[in-house]
Amino acid sequence: MTITIHLVGGLGNQMFQYAFGTALAQHYQTNLLLDDSWYARLPAADTARQMDLMCLKISNTQFIPPQKEAFSFIKSTRLKKLLQSFLPNGPVVHREKKGFFFDRAVFTLNSANTQNHFFTGYWQAFNYIEAIRTQLQAEFQPRAGLNQHYQYYRSLMQSSPAAMVHVRRGDYIHLPAAAQFHGALSLHYYLAGMRLILEREPNTQFFLFSDDLPWCKENFPRDFKITYIDRSDAADADAQEIDLMTYCQHFIIANSSFSWWGAWLRKNIDGLVIAPNRWISDTSLDLSDLLPANWQRLPA
């Protein structure tokens, strides 16, 4: 038996998928394979992404090698695997039934010992991975270590009460599909979160991460003590910034897996984590499997 995980999306999504696969492989005491074929034919409507997992200190680096196979003329990996499942000895295909939902059934597969299993989805629920948190804290660090550019910000974080603020705009504003599905959070959400932290820690220094720093510098009040994180041009900048986030004491995350990981991997578990009460445009979505109960939700 082998567990194969279909990887899609940016680094935050890749981390969720890898973590889910690792937890599942350990549960069944079997091997984990990673399918990164999505990145070779990125859908035109999606945000441009690249495979970034290798920038992290992950212990499992077994990727499916490019190969000729049945149904190779079909571009969709999910459809291809579904068709292959009808072949003798084909994999059992599992497609995530519901986003941001913990599906206990994946840990009780009837055919776990006799067939290979292929999983496609995002698997963004902390219950899948809570048991391996310590392992993930060790693996989800930059393989090359924190570089000098970000070490400077880390030294500032360690010298005063520090709070991370992540403002994601970019594709949430300018890419129609992402803007409609996710949508950027309001400035009111961020300011309410910052004031809440200041009530607890008046001397807090805020460290703001964003893909749109000019907008942030123009719109965030100047009376807050804010250090804006200039993005490095290093190839592993995403991995560097998620790791840098974990050194803060308090967190105001965006509706983004990127800052979700910064907060979940945090080194100080006693601080405040503030999250939006909506993750996507559908405000009726139940977020209890995505956002731990001790994370405080604010209107967004």
Score class of each variant (00 low, 15 high):
229 I>Q: 06
230 D>A: 15
230 D>R: 10
232 S>W: 07
235 A>R: 09
235 A>F: 07
235 A>N: 10
236 D>K: 06
238 D>Y: 03
239 A>C: 09
239 A>V: 04
239 A>R: 03
241 E>R: 06
241 E>F: 04
243 D>I: 00
243 D>F: 15
244 L>P: 10
246 T>H: 06
248 C>P: 04
248 C>E: 04
250 H>P: 02
251 F>E: 01
252 I>G: 00
253 I>D: 03
253 I>Y: 05
253 I>G: 03
253 I>F: 02
254 A>C: 13
254 A>F: 12
255 N>H: 07
255 N>C: 12
255 N>E: 10
256 S>A: 13
256 S>P: 04
258 F>Q: 11
259 S>Q: 12
259 S>V: 09
259 S>W: 10
259 S>F: 07
259 S>N: 11
260 W>K: 12
260 W>E: 09
261 W>F: 11
261 W>H: 12
262 G>L: 14
264 W>A: 09
264 W>F: 15
265 L>D: 08
266 R>A: 14
269 I>R: 15
269 I>M: 08
270 D>Q: 13
270 D>L: 09
270 D>T: 14
271 G>Q: 07
271 G>F: 04
272 L>W: 02
273 V>F: 01
273 V>W: 00
274 I>C: 02
274 I>Q: 02
276 P>A: 05
276 P>W: 03
276 P>Q: 03
276 P>D: 04
277 N>T: 02
277 N>I: 01
277 N>F: 00
277 N>W: 02
278 R>F: 06
278 R>A: 05
278 R>T: 08
279 W>G: 08
279 W>N: 03
280 I>Y: 01
281 S>L: 01
282 D>Y: 00
